[in-house]
Design a protein around this nucleic acid. Structure first.
Lengths: 240, 240
DNA sequence: CCATAACGAGAGCACTGCTCTTGCATCTGC
DNA sequence: GCAGATGCAAGAGCAGTGCTCTCGTTATGG
């Protein structure tokens, strides 16, 4: 209630030394936890993390109130990491379809490099875990990117005309479309969501071993085939 | 009971009574474990299951060598359950597109009714768990069903002609296509796999809460929209 | 300068999967 | 018909878990 807490602006020197040490410690715990994620999956052991840091388990609780809090931090980081990877890749291209493909491949590459973090955010939810509100905005970055690419193509007039949508779900998407851009067809929003979902499905299937014994070598090519199919469905045509 | 000259190989009566009790017990453990799956997810507690059955944890090990063995049994059951649900639904229809839609909706309905079993088979892999060979055949039932529907449409000549595939992955799929049917285009196999993957992606996205705040009411309609899109991509056209 | 707040260590609670031993009931070969 | 083999459940025990609480220590800031 009172405004007596120390503002981080004024104190300097030794004062924010402790704060800096604390921030470093907080980050280091995350780093080690991320490594443990690779072996233990979502049920990582706080005690093991503490052991690796040369501290006792209860000390970790000074930095994260619970194991779930630590998981939340990792989840937010993962959402931001894959979102940023996709955004960067897309920003390097000019044509909408090129952006689309670049974003998809960047997401897949990130997932292949960080499979357990991918599982954390796009796999089955951790049993007792309830995602807090902080995660929802980072969680939408990739979806928003796909939507932005389609919207850009639409406003540029290079998006192939699509049949309008029918169905109740289309009405539900109406306000979303309107909030992005007045007169944006719901079809664009629906296609962005569909593409996001199925892009994720394709990556998950590859990562979770569902296409074993079918495609072993050219999984990247198969993924691109799916990416292009999704693009065509959304109205992004190939350049002639 | 007259257990006169019981041959050493084929004892009946009291002999297989014990076996029957054992089979019942084995099944009962699975039933209770399935219930616990709903609350604990993949990391269900063997001890809790045992408690619910009025027995001690070590007794369960008479029936399942390890927790992973119990999980395997549940996984196989789940694969078979969703496979059978989809097959039954498809068998009730005549036209390929109707079979396609029925199979998809049946799979989704089953997933909505058994979300944790869905997560077990199509979600992120359980950390230490390695799926044994017994699971691979049940795991392919839904995929095979989609492939069968497309193949049936192809042999009936009602599958719209598709562009041939290009890419290394297409060559990898060649032997699979040949093993199903001589001269079956790889495109059909690729489309079946794609549809299977993205159907699963759509269900997972809905189940794992990825389309929160966008479509809340008519998720079935949105799913059907995706189903029809996948069908069209695979060459299953609407009846005029 | 000294009260306060942050901190790490350690013990402890209730829980987990799993192993091993023990005693008992049931089945089975002679 | 009985003695021995076998199936089974219980219990103790091990090593591990998340989390809480208490206890000295140490750095911070009024």
């Amino acid at each position: 209630m009172s405004a007596n807490e120390t503002p981080p602006t004024r104190t300097k020197g030794a004062a924010n030394l402790r704060a800096r040490v604390r921030a470093e410690m907080t980050e280091e715990i995350k780093t080690v936890a991320r490594q443990h994620l690779a072996t233990d999956g979502a049920n990582l052991s706080l005690r093991a993390v503490a052991r690796d840091l040369g501290m006792v388990s209860s000390a970790v609780y000074r930095y994260y109130a619970s194991r779930d809090d630590l998981l939340t931090a990792l989840i937010i980081d993962a959402y931001n990491a894959i979102g940023e990877a996709a955004e960067r890749a897309a920003a390097e291209k000019a044509a909408p379809l090129d952006k689309w493909l670049a974003a998809g491949h960047a997401a897949r590459d990130w997932a292949l490099a960080n499979p357990h973090e991918w599982a954390l955010i796009y796999g089955s939810p951790v049993p007792g875990y309830q995602a807090p509100q902080d995660t929802v905005i980072p969680a939408t970055r990739v979806l928003l990117l796909l939507g932005a690419i389609l919207t850009e193509a639409y406003t540029a007039g290079v998006l192939a005309p699509r049949e309008p949508l029918a169905g109740l779900f289309a009405e539900e998407l109406e306000p979303i479309a309107a909030s992005v851009l007045p007169d944006l067809p719901v079809r664009v929003v629906a296609d962005a969501i569909t593409a996001f979902i199925q892009m994720g499905g394709a990556i998950s299937a590859e990562l979770f071993g569902q296409l074993n014994k079918s495609i072993e070598e050219d999984r990247r090519g198969f993924f691109e085939y799916q990416l292009r199919t999704l693009a065509r469905t959304a109205g992004l045509e190939e350049k002639p």
